[in-house]
Design a binder for these strands. Sequence first.
DNA 1: TTTTTATTCAACCAATCGGTTGACAACCGC
DNA 2: GCGGTTGTCAACCGATTGGTTGAATAAAAA
Lengths: 114, 114
Amino acid sequence: MATDPLSLTFAALADPTRRAILARLAQGQTSVGELAAPHQMSLAAVSKHIKVLETAGLIAREKDAQYRYCKLQAGPLKDLDGWIDAYRGLWRDNLDQLDAYLADMQRGDDTNKQ
Amino acid sequence: MATDPLSLTFAALADPTRRAILARLAQGQTSVGELAAPHQMSLAAVSKHIKVLETAGLIAREKDAQYRYCKLQAGPLKDLDGWIDAYRGLWRDNLDQLDAYLADMQRGDDTNKQ
DNA sequence: TTTTTATTCAACCAATCGGTTGACAACCGC
DNA sequence: GCGGTTGTCAACCGATTGGTTGAATAAAAA
């Protein structure tokens, strides 16, 4: 796997368990155990997922007694949002394409047919 | 790998080569060969990358003579943008927390308070 | 028809992924 | 200290990834 920040972020998010963990953390920081509870897999597996998220910079950990509290870090999400910016105009353009297609249909023009 | 649409999209984007292909396609549709040219890997490898993007719904292919023209499909990117929406408030409230708080204080606005 | 161009397919490879289990470390309460 | 709780580490496993090469397909060009 590529190790550049954007690739790490995308890869970290390409797993439903990790996105669920993130969603949970959006409501506030929690311990690893609580993060693991909703998932039917071993604690070690969740611990690995958390490490992936941490490596991507999506979460930070704070040690308190025997607990490790995780909290969401917005930085990489912000970067991801910045990446999407370059494409944001595009789905407006695609809508225009659809409009054009429908207009063509009404005119009996079929150059856009498959 | 998970096969839900969002996971497919994130996974497809977790590779610099595939993001480069997408960036190229943002400027207009092209053949596989032209998409492959800038990358120092075999055409077959690029063909595989393109298939990953296609499976994620990020591109569509159109056959014309011996060429396969690829064009960007915005749908999954739009969905991804929608996913980020849930977190967008976070870097406003988190990263710029202090700035926002101070600015609010100066304006006497307290809508960002807990 | 033969050759060239464009692309995919199939088989293979090493590396990585997502999960398991068991051992270990750190800390709390008794 | 001892036992329970919390979490990580290490080793292992099968499946998947990202690349390779060579053969196969399909259409254009000669």
